[in-house]
Structures are given as C-alpha cells and as structure tokens.
Amino acid sequence: MSVHSEIKKITTETLRKMKFDKEKITMLTAYDFTTAKMVDAGGVDAILVGDSASNVMAGYETTLPITLDQMIYHAQCVIRGVDRALVVVDLPFGSYQSNPEKALESAVRIMKESEAHAIKLEGGKEVEKSIKKIVNAGIPVMGHLGLTPQSIYQFGTYKVRAKEEEEAEKLISDAKLLEELGCFSVVLEKIPAALAKKVTDSVSIPTIGIGAGPHCDGQVLVYHDMVGMNKDFSPKFLRRYLDLYTEITGAVSQYVKDVKSTDFPNQEESY
C-alpha cells in the first residue's frame, strides 16, 4: 500500500515527500468533469489539465491554437470533478513567453477563475523571469523540459530531445535553475532514460517523465492515449490499458442496429 494513499488532498508538498520517500508519483491528463471524476477515483496523485486538449479535444495538429480562456474552461470542469488529486494547468502558448507581467497575469487568471492548484509552463533559462514573477506571487509552478510541444515549429520534429551532449548539458542546468527559481516539480518529455536519471538525481524536486524512461520520480500520460481512444497515436513510450476506440465504436454500431431494427427501446425500456 502506498505511503500517501490515505491522504485526503495531495499538495505540492506531498509530491516532494513522495520523492524523498522514493514513492513513484502518478499523473494523468483530464479536460472535463466526468473524466476528472474517474481519474481521481482511480487514485492518481496529480491531474494535468494539459494544452494537449488542443489535440485530443479540439482536433488541432499542435498545442499552439488553444487559448487561455479555453484552458480556464477545461480547468473549471476538471476542478469540479476532483476530491483528492493535485490539479495542474498548462499555461498555453503565447500567454507567458512575451513578458513576465503577462505571464503573471495569465497564471493569476487560471488560479482565480478555475481554483486549480498549480500551473505548468515550458522552458528553462529563456522563461526565467516569468517563472520568478509567478513563484514570487505565491503560485506553484511545474516546469517542463526536453520535448516542449509549444516549440514544435522551432524543433521541426517530435523526435527525442537532448541526445547530443550540448543539449543534454543545457537540460541539466535548466532543471537545476527551475529548482533554484522555486518550481515544485518538472516534467521531462521524450529524452534518453540515462539523462532523465541524471536530472532526477541532481535535483531535489520531483521529476515526472513522459517518454523519459523508468528513473523519473513519476510518470504522466495523456488519458485519451492511455485508455486507447486514439488509435492512430502509437509512440514507443505509450502503454495502452484499454482499447476504448474499438469498444465505443462497437457499442455505437450496436445501438444503430438496435434502433434500426426496432429492438430498442423494448417494452421494459418504455413507459
């Protein structure tokens, strides 16, 4: 049984203690009330209201189009379904990069309007001033290094990051900087497992991996991918726990047949 399974509310401090106690942290995304309720009831430690909503909820190719207002809406829906998990919300592209004042304003809006528990943003040294400003205002910040999807047009690819020594060194120093700035945790996306271990060992804040191997302090996956709603997305790091795409399309197809054949509704299902 997990050391922290009896905790009524997970906080940023709980995650720090979990790293110290060497208990793995679990995180999944959620973007709506019903999903959040199920994910929370399943016992995850943290829920990420990710800008991946841009892909899985809105059908965009990248995370770039989603707006701050839309992120706040998704966060409001999730918060209403959660009793225990820590809820972290992504600051969307364009809401924090240009200047620290705008970054703080965006973070404050998320915290006030959604009642979420923390925000997440991408980048290291280049967003140092924004992080400092948000942390100084008392808002918990989760960092995000490695493959940072908001910079996809700069990278030009979703391939594994930090394979070269120079980028790997920058990633380690960025992780240490995020810790110094007061971030309570950092997501490491799509980097070599050996590098993720190095980062995890060199900072006292928890690392949460996605495609970063088994040595991180925790793991995060996109809920829709994990339960198999997306059949076209199959990166190496993804483990599918269900095949909901097949289950749901099968159920819909059966419903269509039953209605067409007048089998539904039957006598018991009628008033």
Rank of each mutant, 00 (worst) to 15 (best):
V89Y: 09
D51P: 11
E169K: 10
K198S: 00
V3N: 09
L86R: 11
E13S: 13
Q254I: 03
G211N: 01
R239A: 10
D225N: 11
E105L: 12
V87Y: 03
T11E: 11
I7N: 02
E180T: 14
K176P: 07
T29P: 08
D232P: 00
V256Y: 09
Q154E: 03
L28W: 01
I210S: 00
Y271P: 12
S204D: 15
E6V: 06
P214T: 11
A194M: 00
P140A: 13
V227Q: 07
T200V: 04
M57L: 15
E179R: 09
S54K: 07
E23T: 04
S54W: 11
F93K: 01
L188M: 07
D83N: 08
D201R: 02
E179M: 10
T62A: 13
K17P: 01
G228D: 14
L15A: 03
V108K: 08
V135M: 10
F237A: 13
G218P: 05
D258P: 06
Q154W: 00
T157N: 12
E189T: 01
V78Q: 09
V187W: 00
L238N: 05
S185K: 08
K198P: 00
K19Y: 05
T62G: 13
T34H: 06
N266D: 15
L91C: 12
G250Q: 10
A196S: 04
Y60N: 14
I47V: 04
L195H: 00
D83C: 03
T34C: 10
D201Y: 05
L91V: 11
P65R: 10
L221M: 13
D83K: 11
K176C: 11
L221F: 09
S204M: 09
Y96W: 07
C183W: 09
L145Q: 03
K133E: 14
L221Y: 07
K170M: 08
K197G: 02
A116L: 12
L15M: 05
E128C: 07
H117E: 05
H74R: 06
E169M: 06
F184M: 04
Q254S: 08
